[in-house]
Amino acid sequence: MLIFWDQRLVFLATPKAGSTAVEMALDPLAAVSMPRPDPLKHMAARDYAAHLAPYLHSASGEHFTTVALMRHPLDWLRSWYRFMHRDELDTTQIDSPNQSFEQFIETCLSDQTHRFAGIGKQTDYLTDENGGLLIDRLFRYEDMDSLVRFLEDRLDCAITLPRVNVPPSVETKLRPETEIRLREFLADDFRLYGTIGPEHPPQDS
């Protein structure tokens, strides 16, 4: 999470949606940067609205615009899967490091107490408990240029995003019937994603 005091702007970092690149590019410009631990780096919008937003408003007398990214829901899980197969990741912390993507998704769908189920959904980070959007300016990860233009305008500077956290190339295809079930499971995410622009096809379909 990044807070830009003078510009009354807060960047909330949705996991696995390009947040690290944005934070690396903008960290020198931010009044407050929270790169760790994860509960602060990836503070959910509902936690921000409940705890930090009231303080910022009280201290400044003004509303801080929130901005965030959302990734195509299927690509988001593909990114998590690739992340879990990085060479430097301690695979002893993964229950089944050799799981196929199909098995990984089946696990997420069938066993909500499994470690992978802790990934959750993007709507967990972007909406309230009733599904209401809590972000003022939400951009698609697949349309990063629009986010950059918005930030350049608000921060009055040119922005170049670095290429970081490049995951390994691994197979991430799904059987059609599994994808149907996954789309049902992620219905709220697909619904929200559809409100911020034309739906992009997942990369490996």
Rank of each mutant, 00 (worst) to 15 (best):
F139M: 09
P198D: 10
K121H: 05
F116C: 15
I119Q: 04
D95P: 01
T123I: 06
S169C: 04
E142R: 05
C108L: 15
A59K: 10
E177V: 11
S100V: 03
I196T: 03
D188T: 11
D188M: 08
G194D: 09
S79T: 06
M24S: 07
I135Q: 02
G61M: 02
T127K: 02
T127V: 14
H85R: 15
D47K: 09
P162K: 01
A59S: 06
D95A: 13
Q93W: 12
F116M: 12
Q203R: 15
D143T: 14
F64I: 10
P202T: 14
T195E: 15
L69K: 03
F139I: 04
R154I: 01
D111V: 14
L138R: 05
I159Q: 02
E199G: 07
H63L: 08
P162Q: 04
D75I: 05
I180A: 14
F83D: 06
E106Q: 15
A44E: 12
V170W: 11
E184N: 09
T195M: 11
E62A: 13
T65K: 03
S96W: 05
D87A: 13
D204H: 15
V166L: 13
D38C: 09
E88R: 13
F139S: 04
D87Y: 01
E129P: 06
Q103E: 14
M1Y: 10
Y125T: 06
S58N: 12
E88W: 13
S205R: 15
P15S: 07
A187K: 07
G118P: 14
D95V: 14
M70D: 13
T178I: 13
L2S: 06
H42S: 01
P167D: 08
A50G: 07
E88Y: 14
